[in-house]
Design a protein around this nucleic acid. Sequence first.
DNA 1: CAGATTAATCATCAACTGATGAATAAGTGT
DNA 2: ACACTTATTCATCAGTTGATGATTAATCTG
Lengths: 247, 247
Amino acid sequence: MAVRRPKAVKKARRGRPLKNNATPDMRERILDAAEDHFSRHGFWGVTIREVAQDAKVDTALLHYYFDTKRGLFDSVFARRAEIINRERIDSIDAYETAAGDAITAEGVINAFLQPILERAAQGDQHWHNYFALIAQVNNTPAWGGETMARTFDPVIHRLIRALRKALPDASEEDLYWSYHFLSGALTLSLSQTGRIDRLSNGLCKSSDFESIHHRMAPFIASGFERLCKPVAAPAVAVGRASARRAV
Amino acid sequence: MAVRRPKAVKKARRGRPLKNNATPDMRERILDAAEDHFSRHGFWGVTIREVAQDAKVDTALLHYYFDTKRGLFDSVFARRAEIINRERIDSIDAYETAAGDAITAEGVINAFLQPILERAAQGDQHWHNYFALIAQVNNTPAWGGETMARTFDPVIHRLIRALRKALPDASEEDLYWSYHFLSGALTLSLSQTGRIDRLSNGLCKSSDFESIHHRMAPFIASGFERLCKPVAAPAVAVGRASARRAV
DNA sequence: CAGATTAATCATCAACTGATGAATAAGTGT
DNA sequence: ACACTTATTCATCAGTTGATGATTAATCTG
């Protein structure tokens, strides 16, 4: 990838200094502008000219820092991922230590969701944009799966390890599929398309992350438990097809 | 929108006939090619030239039938929506009638999911592409919410009406949010990004719709019930934050 | 047969696209 | 003072983009 990046030197960098040390440097300005555009219109819906114009910078500077348009996109995607990944791992670690043997699926899932949903609830537009970007990548067939995996798999493996502890009877497949449902629900909720606003005729709001937060953890945890815990009596089959494939 | 469309006349259409009556007519060929491309790369990632080339047609013909690129996209999106919408409404109707007072959330959700997941399991590439397209639109901030609402809201309202019957104590907000989680989980599962394949190191496969089908209904139904049924004893708060907002 | 109508192609446009090599600005090291 | 390094802008290219008006093809109607 070879994306050029000014080294974070302690002091006395050589060469021309950043244009204005009071303002955030231009590399960050470009990333901010790019994040804004990519999150709204996806990779192909954005031109580097729009980004450059928004960052008040010549288009050549984007190539100077990020080589290609794709390099810019990848940098945007990686930048905030590092932050939330660390937070989520710390959160799961902390919960696991605190809970000890009383570990529950809902507790784990809550620890996993909290850093993201808390940030979302705080209302920072930059993070909102970034979350919307994740949602799009997560549902992009061509290279979305690969990008998501490369960026987030370590955290998810950490999550699943904790869940395995809370749900010792769970099969690996059930855990992975359950996470997949969680992932879809979470990213859609973060994407703020306004869909639920219209559907509910204004009763629910895409931007109401508090509501999402206190509903999602129990909802998802309950799904995990249903799939991953041995049940005494299997539920009676309802409808035409649910009996078709009894496990 | 004024998209030109040859009327489905019984007999003796005027004007030049379709190029080859043996082959599906060119309008459908264009829609198929467009569906293929849009589903893989989204609206902006596709050029009308690529579509035209794939359909072995001049680009001007796309404008003849669909006016604009966006008109083409909308036609692609609406074409199969009509089919599955009818199927899903019929499925819910049939279940509600058959179940009577024994109606359950899982039964309703299964009836809702079945037409889609059954089609997906059958392995028709055209439908796979279309489902991937839905997933992208569902997570597109700019106009995805509006498009999804316009296309699917009637079916969802029918679903929620049935769920209200199965979960009489549910609040409207809980129902809408629960559906939102369902929507995210479903569309991600349909988008086949290969994410779960990588995450599970090949153990789970995006293309394994049988596995999705018999896991998703209980998973989601359980979430609905947890959120929408009055519980005897509220769950003990776990982790740092889950107690923050007791309802 | 002579219009009328629809289907499809052709040729072309003006604007835009990502990218690049050269030039310039503003420093640092010696 | 002078070479070197980094940051930023300028000018421009070759290829692509969505769109359109004119044209041709094929059939129906009267």
